[in-house]
Amino acid sequence: MTTADDRAYPGNGVDGPAPRFEGLRALFINATLKRSPEPSNTDGLVRISARIMREHGVQVEEIRAADHEIATGVWPDMTEHGWDTDAWPPIYRQVAAADILVLAGPIWLGDNSSVMKRVIERLYSCSGLLNEHGQYAYYGRVGGCLITGNEDGVKHCAMNVLYSLQHLGFTIPPQADAGWIGPAGPGPSYLDPGSGGPENDFTTRNTTFMTYNLLHLASMLRDAGGVPAYGNRRSEWDAGCAPDQDNPEHR
């Protein structure tokens, strides 16, 4: 009987050398409230995941959203809607060039930061754009998230981020989130001396599993040419050619 471990998926690294993922590109957006160069605890988890990716040949970029003047709104370029400046269009070009997007951020009042919410809103602003197959723009890309804090809310924040990403068209692999949380109430943050965060086996394990799952799924989607386009093409639907519906004008 053939088991999953016996099957010859070339990227599983079970019976051979560690897989390589050259050609894949990953983007981490850190939604900390802190501007550079102020230390960000969320960067501590980002570094673990980004290091693994780089060691396997992935081109990795990191953005701290608070360093950029991202306008509020739900249009691709808010300078066309009354804002003097908007840093989102060049950031979106980095998103569009990436096979993997990881949103990372802190917990405030049990929820995602205001910066995280703005990033997701601006991702939404571009979700109506189409790819070369006529699908929504984020099809064929995978998403994950990293959450840090010293108060409850890791799973709540992760659910919000991952739901948002899949709703916009990203594909979410198994165990696509990881987080660290200190003692409830005021206390040490992830990178504070003596916090135990960097040494926490549960957090490091989940971050590692998330990273490899993102890499494997992104590689599989790339090799398959993305998500199959039958039945999910917005361009076809708008033209009156909805699948499985008779329309003599578009046969």
Rank of each mutant, 00 (worst) to 15 (best):
G182A: 14
Y138T: 01
G185Y: 11
K155H: 04
Y139L: 09
Y124N: 11
M159H: 13
G197P: 05
S125N: 11
P174D: 10
N160Q: 09
G185Q: 13
D192A: 13
L101W: 10
M116G: 05
P186K: 04
L109S: 10
Q135V: 14
N213Y: 03
T204G: 12
A158N: 11
G140N: 09
V119H: 03
L103T: 09
V161Y: 01
P174S: 01
L191V: 00
V142R: 00
H167Q: 13
S164V: 02
M159A: 13
Y190E: 12
E199H: 00
S125F: 04
A178P: 15
S113Y: 13
G187D: 06
N112I: 07
C126S: 09
P198Q: 10
Q175S: 11
N150Y: 10
R122F: 00
A137V: 12
M116F: 14
V119S: 04
L168Q: 04
G197L: 06
N206T: 11
K155Q: 11
V119T: 14
D111N: 14
L101C: 09
S113G: 06
M116S: 07
L168I: 12
N200C: 02
M116K: 09
T148C: 12
S195L: 01
L168R: 00
F209H: 08
G169Q: 00
I172A: 00
Y124M: 13
V119I: 06
L103S: 00
M159L: 15
S125K: 13
I107L: 02
V161S: 14
C126D: 11
D192P: 13
P106K: 01
Q135M: 03
I120M: 12
S127W: 01
H167R: 04
V161N: 06
L191I: 02
G140V: 04
I120N: 00
G143W: 00
F209M: 04
R118C: 12
G110V: 06
Y212N: 15
I120Q: 07
D201W: 08
D192K: 02
S125E: 06
A137Y: 15
I107Q: 13
V154I: 09
G140C: 12
D111V: 15
Y138E: 00
N213G: 15
Q175I: 03
V119F: 04
W180L: 06
I181D: 02
V161F: 10
V142S: 03
P186F: 07
S113T: 08
F209R: 04
S164D: 01
A137E: 10
A158L: 08
D201G: 02
C157E: 04
L191E: 12
I181S: 01
P193N: 05
H156P: 05
